[in-house]
Amino acid sequence: MNTLPPAPVWLAEEPWLQELLLWFIGKLEKQRSRDVTRLVKQKTVPALFDFSEDTKYRWELIERELVQRYQVFSISSARRSKQSQEPYENVQLRLNAATEPLLRHWLNRPRISPEEQNWQAAIDLYAHHFIDHGAALRAQRLTLPGYSSVQLVAGIASAGTLLGQSLTLREISAHCFLGNSKVLDNRQELLTRLFGDSISSLIERPLLLTAWAPAGFSKLLFIENQDTFLHLTEQPPSNSALVYSGGFRASASRLISSATRFAFLPGSDADGFKASWKQPSIQAFFWGDLDYAGMGILRALRLSLPHLLSWQPGYRQMLNALHEGAGHTPEQGGKGGQIDPIETGCDYADQQLLPALRMAGRFLDQEGFHSRTTGSIADTPSALN
């Protein structure tokens, strides 16, 4: 709870005094070895020498309020060399550093960390490279272990010079950040604010998926995990093409874009697959881990293929095993951070699988349920409790 007194009314009425106090705060934010002081002269505090105003009252505010009442300053007098000299001329104001929190509270000037200061200073150096003069970076400080603020801002500034050169975002990142290709991942909105329409010149990074596709297939099954995918290619479901989605990779919005590339296993009808896999007439399914992440993949895939459903022949085995007590807790599987997707849009998943996961509080991985071991986990639930 903040127990500092509110700013006095007279402070709002005297902008010159706010400026004086801000000057002292600014000095506190710089490295120093001595107390912060200011000698009162016409050049340093001109408001006290503007005799069209009540300068006597202005000085009384400093003496009575800031020195005596709030103890913001202590003052030391100088010898007066002229009789006509103002009583405060050449007086030295010495800031009481203990009142810094009070002044920051009055002036709404929170302390800036050294890291934030370095970030702002780095933006100042490179602001002319950005169409918004770095405003987007000032509002969103980036941090990356081992990189200084100057290295980060300089890297982003240099990214602008590479736009228009037929490069992907990861290629640009590698050029600008010491060979690190992932710094700019998920930062296209930021880059748009910094560089405008030139960001449209980026080449979309292809999505690479592995597929097995027999001629004349009528069903398409996305499989989350590699082991299960390979086993099913040996004993595939009838009339089905198989795609190894590799977790969330295939759930990207670019799944159905022209940038998607497929690597086909031997025996595949690659041309037939490319011509028909996105057609609504092809029944599409997903089978993955029976956990919240797997359900999240299902939900995300449906954003690209709205007709896609959960694959019941695979999930039914897993659901039966879960009902019989099989499965691991989120903590046992290192899945404590998984989030319930609430719903996927697939009736079977929303009405059967997700309620079962919530009730059981346990998960099952897909690798235990391929054609060579069907039923093995359900037969021995006690071994996996």
Score class of each variant (00 low, 15 high):
residue 319 L to W: 14
residue 227 D to T: 11
residue 194 L to I: 02
residue 109 R to K: 01
residue 77 S to L: 08
residue 50 D to P: 02
residue 203 I to L: 11
residue 110 P to D: 10
residue 354 L to N: 03
residue 292 Y to R: 04
residue 348 Y to V: 02
residue 42 Q to V: 14
residue 36 V to G: 05
residue 250 A to I: 01
residue 186 N to L: 07
residue 116 E to V: 08
residue 63 E to T: 15
residue 105 H to L: 02
residue 354 L to K: 03
residue 30 K to D: 12
residue 148 S to Y: 00
residue 378 A to C: 02
residue 101 P to H: 06
residue 75 I to D: 00
residue 305 L to R: 04
residue 19 E to P: 07
residue 97 A to T: 12
residue 224 E to L: 01
residue 198 S to I: 04
residue 63 E to D: 10
residue 113 S to R: 02
residue 352 Q to D: 08
residue 185 D to S: 06
residue 330 P to N: 04
residue 64 R to N: 12
residue 338 Q to E: 14
residue 201 S to P: 09
residue 12 A to Q: 10
residue 330 P to F: 01
residue 350 D to K: 01
residue 79 R to I: 07
residue 161 T to M: 09
residue 283 Q to Y: 05
residue 363 F to E: 03
residue 305 L to F: 06
residue 276 S to G: 06
residue 257 S to Y: 00
residue 346 C to D: 15
residue 316 R to E: 15
residue 302 R to E: 02
residue 373 T to Y: 10
residue 42 Q to E: 15
residue 110 P to K: 01
residue 325 G to R: 03
residue 178 L to N: 08
residue 186 N to Y: 11
residue 26 G to T: 04
residue 152 L to H: 07
residue 66 L to Q: 11
residue 52 S to N: 12
residue 150 V to H: 10
residue 134 G to C: 04
residue 39 L to F: 05
residue 187 R to N: 05
